[in-house]
């Protein structure tokens, strides 16, 4: 199915957030996720199912003021 990952239309096989991170080769602990504007904690990623058209945000630390 097709979802938006960080604003980009992306075709995925995975059906939950944890699996999407694996499928798209995201690694490391310093990642946070939100689905359709709602924060999804690390331990909820596995159980958070995805539907076509969902908006997934994957954020990581960056320089800031």
């Amino acid at each position: 199915m097709r979802i938006l990952v960080n604003g980009e239309a992306t075709e995925i096989q995975a059906s939950n957030i944890a699996a999407v991170l694996d499928e798209l080769l995201y690694e490391g602990e310093a990642l946070a996720t939100a689905l359709n504007g709602q924060f999804v904690a690390r331990e909820q990623r596995q159980e958070t199912a995805l539907q076509a058209g969902d908006q997934l945000e994957i954020l990581a630390p960056m320089q800031g003021g």
Binding site: N6, G7, L24, L25, Y26, L31, A32, E57, I58, L59, A60, P61, M62, Q63, G64, G65
Partner: peptide, 8 residues
């Protein structure tokens, strides 16, 4: 620090 969209 801040948070921004992460690439792979």
């Amino acid at each position: 620090v801040s948070l921004r969209r992460e690439g792979a």
